[in-house]
Amino acid sequence: MIRARVIGAGVAGLCAAWALARAGVEVELVETAAAVGAGCSRYAGGMIAPWCELENAEPLVACLGGEALDFWSRELAVATIAGSLVVAPARETAELTDFARRTKNFCRLDADGIAALEPDLAGRFPRALYFPAEAHLDPRQALSALDARLASLPNVARRFGVNADALPPAPDWTIDCRGFSARGALPGLRGVKGEMLLLRSDDIRLSRPVRLLHPRRPAYIVPRGDGLFMIGATMIENEERARVTARSIVELVNSAFTLHPAFGEAEIVETGSDVRPAFVDNLPRLTLRGRTLFINGLYRHGFLLAPALAARAARIVCDGVDFPELTNAHSGERAFA
């Protein structure tokens, strides 16, 4: 039996542990924090939106992301497929036109169509794009669910509060899923700061994520149930992890308020800030060094990309398969080197 040590219990590490364990590998999952999701995964939007992401991501992201829909909604059964709604303030309708040009698998809605989907948004926007096949999940719930499933498998040992550096070398394979913390080992990995906000309001109900387009301050609002809404996320080329700025909060609250004025009276439940690990092309990478495989560079697509990357990591470990589109450096990186 192949043995593998997975380092890091964020979404990439948990998915990798799951895929390896299901493929019959004996898995040791090691995490320095006391529980799952202590890193940037906990602040994710949790939108499984491969086609919306085409707005600013390369086709590879949508292609890999398609696999996540099935994984989170059927295999793990933690995601809801209720689609994504995309709207723009009246003076920013050009943003909606551009968004439609870059994405696919949507239909166009008029004001009545919006009202039928989201009654609380009735009369607020003249038109929208609707991506019916997309899903959303609560990242913390999803991480816990995945951890619980791992705990039930006989070939998985989970070790929290343990620093992998202090352990003896891994038996066969090491799967490094440390995200930004692996930066010393992965030249070219950078952090892109993101800040989020959790609001509570009983005055508004949404059934699906809503993206609010704006040339400088695009934002999304994801319903988390029980009156909770996640508002995200800033994108700043900066590597400071835990520092939420007043300006960012103003922008995020303003976006929520633009979507619906009831958010003005919402309770601020939590603010969060961390950095997304990204390579220069903002595409994920499987980096193979001997018998260490790094899964990294998931950028703003952790939950969207982790299942597909984990599945390929398992094929590499078990079957020696190569995935050149993920293991070779993208041309962009060569150009920068």
């Binding site: 080329e237 590597e239 400071e240």
Partner: peptide
């Protein structure tokens, strides 16, 4: 904005 609390924008500036 990229400067944040100090020189944490350095990775992008290096690019």
């Amino acid at each position: 904005r990229e400067a944040g609390g100090g020189r944490s924008g350095e990775s992008f500036w290096a690019l």
